[in-house]
Structure formats: structure tokens, C-alpha cells
Simulated assay, not measured.
Amino acid sequence: MHRTKTLVLALAAGLVLPFAGWAQPAYPARPITLVVGFPPGGGADTVARIVGDSLSRQLGQPVVIDNRPGAGTTIASDFVARAAPDGYTLLLGSAGLYGGDRQLYKNVKYDGAASFTPISRWSLAPMLLAVSNALPARNVGELIALAKAQPGKLAYSSSGAGVVTHLAALAFERAAGVQMLHVPYKGGAPSLQAVAAGDVQLTFGTPPSVLPLAQGGKLRMLATTGAQRSPQLPDLPTVAESGVPGYEFSFWFGLFAPAGVPRDVADRLFEASTRALADPQVRERLEKSGNTPAPSASRTEFGQWAAVEGRRTLELTQRSGATNE
């Protein structure tokens, strides 16, 4: 009987030991997909590829960029929200996740606070306030004076109702106490061409889009919307220091994972992001693209900050009255 019991225990041990060796490998054990809701070549894609390249070196696995443009980035966001929360499908996200997307697209099913785990902020980028050469205003103060003298007459273009170029102008109207006429276009290029042609008087555009036209003498830059002057344009004042105290509007990108991702995986991604954004070459490449490296102090800090920014974006989106349904 004793020999029989010993044999049974030995067989059981033989069955258990192999399974013990089947423990999950350390994360990451295979390539990671970073989903971007914009087409290749744009500002978001540039940030994703610059930081993603360094992130792959930090993690020891390829970070593959998966561009899924369309429906104001909601296609990409929905794809990641429904992905397995294992850290292998991530999202380059922004403030629209926190309600702005659902304001614009009523069929959106995800919720920023419930569907995603914030990992880290990656970049901040100011916009540029640019005006037509035909406009007599040479600074923000003169622009405000013209707008107040002609309520609802001064026209500004945007790359679409409810998008950041529109929201930046709405925030400016509120902060400066002016009322202007919104003329939406289908994209940044036609929006800026309208300013260059004098069809509208001003716009708020991204640096990569505005700078070539400004350098070519097709339009004039009056200010940057950031909290501080841009290192690339040190002589260009901010809107705030030009007579609109408190005004600041920057668009940002950060890393998000699906809700429910294991804490150790989220921590690993945060640490790798922090190291990537500390790399001097990464910082230089981001700054040359018009972005400022902006790593978060912690995952908690990023989550709280993103939620506040998201609420502000939602309020501006609601004020715009824009909807794409």
C-alpha cells in the first residue's frame, strides 16, 4: 500500500512539473501594435513613429504602427477598446477620447474613462495663429480690436467642424471676448489656402502646415497658442502674452492601453515611454516636427490630466454644435 501511494504521488508530481514550466513569458514576448487614427505622414503618425521606434528598443520587441484613419479617429479607438487587454494592442490617443468623440459621432460605443488605461503623455504641440496678408492687424491686440469693431464679420477657417483647429478658435473667442465667423473646410491644406488667398482672414493651424506658407510670404503668423514660446520660433509671442491672459491651447498625444491591462504591463509601458522620451535623439526629432516631448510624472498623473483636458475639449465640442451624424 505504501509503495502504491508513493507511485501515485510520483506520477502526480510528474504531471504538475511540466505545467509549472508553462508560466506566461515576461512581457513583451512578441511584437506590439500601436494603432494610430490618422493616415501615414501626418503629425500623429510622425509622433507615433519617432517614439515607437525608441519604445521598441526599450522593450526589446518591434512596435508596429497600424494606421486606421477615418471617422475622426473613432475607428482606431474603437478597435483598441475592443482588443485583448494584454499590452500587445495600444492606442495613440488624445483628448477626444473623453467625450468629444461621442459628441461628434453618436454611434461611438467606447468611453475614455472606462474603456482605456492611460499610460503616459508623449507630446504637446501648440498651434499657430496665422492671418491673411490683406488683414491690417500686425499683432493679436490689433486683431482683437478689428474683431470687436465687426462682431461676427471676421472669418476664420478650420480643417473641419469640431476638430482642434476649430476648438482653438472657439477658445480664443471666449478668452478674448470676440465673436467671429467660422468657415470649415475639408482638411488643413484647403483651410490654410483660404487664408493665403484672402478668402478668410485668419486660422489656427499646426506648425508643420503653417510654417511653409509663412516662410513663403503667403500669410503672417501673429502668435503661438502654447503656454510658452516655441523653441523653434523664439521671436513669436504667445497669445497669452499678447493680451489674452490665461489663453493656452495645445494638442497632445499619449499612449493608452485597453481597460483591464495588467498593472505590471502598464507599469512596464510607462517606464519604457519615460526612457524613450528622455532620449536626446527622440527629443530632437520631436522638436523638429513641431512637437514638445512631454512625459508624465506617473500613470496616475497622466490619467488625471488627460481627464481634465478631455472635459475641456468636450465642453468646446458641445459649444461648437458640431456633429458628423
Rank of each mutant, 00 (worst) to 15 (best):
G52M: 00
D45C: 04
A278Q: 09
M127F: 05
G37E: 07
L211M: 15
T203W: 06
D78H: 14
K5H: 10
M1D: 14
V183P: 01
I50N: 01
G246N: 01
A13H: 07
R220C: 05
P39N: 07
A259D: 09
H2K: 15
A171D: 10
T238R: 01
V282H: 05
V308L: 13
V210I: 12
A137T: 05
F249T: 00
A294M: 04
W122H: 05
N107A: 12
L7Y: 11
T73Y: 11
Q201Y: 06
T317C: 09
R285M: 06
T4I: 14
A266G: 09
T292H: 13
E315Q: 13
Q179C: 11
T313I: 07
G141E: 14
V51L: 01
S289A: 13
G205I: 00
R229G: 12
R312E: 02
Q103R: 06
G52L: 03
P25R: 10
P262A: 13
S120W: 07
S158L: 01
P151D: 01
S298L: 09
G160V: 06
K186D: 13
P262I: 08
G254W: 00
V200S: 01
T6K: 14
P28S: 08
T46D: 03
T117K: 00
D86F: 05
A125Q: 10
F249N: 02
P190E: 09
A114D: 14
A276G: 01
W252F: 12
V261M: 06
R3P: 06
P207D: 05
R138T: 15
A149K: 12
E309F: 03
P231F: 10
S159M: 11
P237T: 01
T313H: 10
T274S: 10
E271N: 15
L269E: 05
Q193D: 14
E315M: 05
R138D: 13
Q232D: 15
A113P: 03
A130P: 05
S296L: 13
V47W: 10
G162E: 02
T6H: 11
S158N: 04
G310C: 02
G96H: 03
P237H: 08
R275H: 08
D279V: 08
S132T: 12
T33F: 08
M1V: 14
G216A: 15
Q150E: 14
A113G: 09
A83G: 03
Q58Y: 06
S157T: 15
Q179E: 15
R102S: 12
R3V: 14
L181C: 13
D267C: 06
S123P: 03
L129A: 06
G112L: 00
Y88D: 09
L129T: 01
G70E: 10
G321H: 04
A197S: 08
S56P: 12
T313P: 02
A257T: 00
